[in-house]
Amino acid sequence: MGLSLAYWVVLLLFGMGLYCILTESNLIKIAVGINVMEAGLLLFLVRLSYSPGDLAPLMGPTTGPGIADPIPHALTLTAIVIAASTTALMLSLIIQIYRHYGTVDIEEIRSKMQ
């Protein structure tokens, strides 16, 4: 089973997010990196439950072949809520840090802390 395009996109997003977190020194970019990484994971979760042509489990039979698995979608929704709230908290912390140090660059903040 070769990897379909969707899985490559997942890998790319996850890798890009992680790379961004590890290498960037701008706090906002790190927050963006975390979001990109989480987006990759969520896409993975959605993709796992669906293969082309599947029906939505709404009417008639709700499980079985040819019907998409609804659980990952419910999980994704929960994970999106968590990701949104962590992002909000992270951004509010960054705003407070900016008020203290006048910059969002890690290196500059570190030098001002000394």
Partner: peptide, 11 residues
């Protein structure tokens, strides 16, 4: 300031 930064780092 240091506590805010430590909190973000931990986060």
């Amino acid at each position: 300031g240091t506590a805010l930064f430590a909190s973000l780092y931990y986060m």
